[in-house]
Write a protein that binds this DNA or RNA. Structure first.
Length: 294
DNA sequence: CCGACAACCTGTGAGC
DNA sequence: TGCTCACAGGTTGTCG
């Protein structure tokens, strides 16, 4: 489930609860997610207080401060493909561990206990400690944040020259720009009218500008939509439907292009004149309109 | 350096 | 009902 908007949504939900809280206890069910969890180092954060809850790329960062040593550190949480991280609404009477729930963190906010739970069926996620953000191996390689002015049409145009890789693949490369996952990469290409399989080096200045704007717009709109269904996602077991109903191409293979055939209306309309195509790029489903995306 | 691909792991839904 | 297969929103590592 998590692309950047989902992670940002979780961050916004956790921040007010965790900021100012002190870590009291950590429990593990499994110590091997994508990487081995440095269990001792995580336990070492007990007693520390959260000063900020941030997002970098798709990583959540809980900044912590140790009043005793006056040192600062951070806990890093990644949701991978199937991860969820949420505050238990009923910490006084905590439910049994879910099948793929791997760790729990108990926090104290003034006199109020809080329970942070984490589940991840596929275990592509991660939990790590970050004593020095500038040196952390998962963070040092990351490219621009999409809302950073450094991610601009000029930059995109400049950094794609002579690149033969598909523009969609380039946009999904976190060493270049972070937070653009498979869904939003397809969506941004459609909005910009750029064919996702087009060699990155052949994207012109005008199209590069449109792509950058499209990436920002689609992420921003998805964040806004995520906020509106936040409770369903964080509080209970409800499946986040978020932005699904607003997608123009993703998972819409064979259905009418919203631009070429706006009155193609319902997704169950038969035989649209301008159907969305699906192809596979680097093993990932890629959706586009072959007519209006050049 | 670049680009293509396999790998990590489990769940779900479609088709038979 | 039960089996098999394709596929799933991320990221790293390796190989040519």
């Amino acid at each position: 489930m998590p692309e950047l908007p989902e992670v940002e949504t979780v961050r916004a939900w956790l921040a007010p609860a965790l900021i100012g809280s002190t870590l009291r206890r950590v429990e593990f069910r499994r110590e091997d997610l994508r990487y081995p969890i440095p269990v001792a180092a995580v336990h070492g954060h007990v007693g520390q207080r959260v000063t900020a809850v941030r997002r970098r790329a798709k990583y959540l960062l809980f900044d912590t401060h140790d009043d005793v040593s006056n040192g600062t550190s951070a806990l890093l949480v990644h949701l991978g493909m199937s991860g969820r991280c949420w505050l238990e609404p009923n910490p006084q009477d905590p439910p049994a561990w879910k099948k793929h729930e791997h760790w729990r963190m108990w926090w104290m906010q003034r006199d109020t206990p809080q329970l942070l739970r984490y589940e991840d069926a596929r275990r592509f996620g991660a939990l790590d400690v970050v004593p020095d953000e500038a040196a952390h191996r998962l963070l040092v390689t990351l490219g621009h944040e999409p809302f950073d002015p450094a991610f601009s049409g000029a930059w995109l145009h400049r950094s794609t020259r002579r690149r033969t890789t598909a523009i969609k693949t380039f946009l999904m490369d976190a060493k270049r720009v972070v937070g653009v996952g498979n869904i939003y990469a397809s969506e941004a290409c459609w909005r910009a009218g750029v064919h996702p399989l087009k060699p990155a080096g052949k994207v012109g200045r005008v199209a590069a500008n449109r792509l950058v704007q499209a990436v920002r717009d689609v992420l921003q709109e998805a964040i806004a939509a995520g906020g509106s269904t936040l409770k369903d996602f964080v509080g209970g077991d409800a499946n986040p439907g978020y932005f699904q109903q607003r997608l123009d191409v993703y998972a819409r293979g064979g259905q009418a292009c919203h631009r070429c055939e706006p009155d193609g209306e319902a997704d169950d309309a038969d035989a649209p004149a301008f159907p969305i195509s699906r192809s596979v790029l680097l093993g990932r489903a890629t959706y586009y309109c072959p007519v209006c995306q050049k």
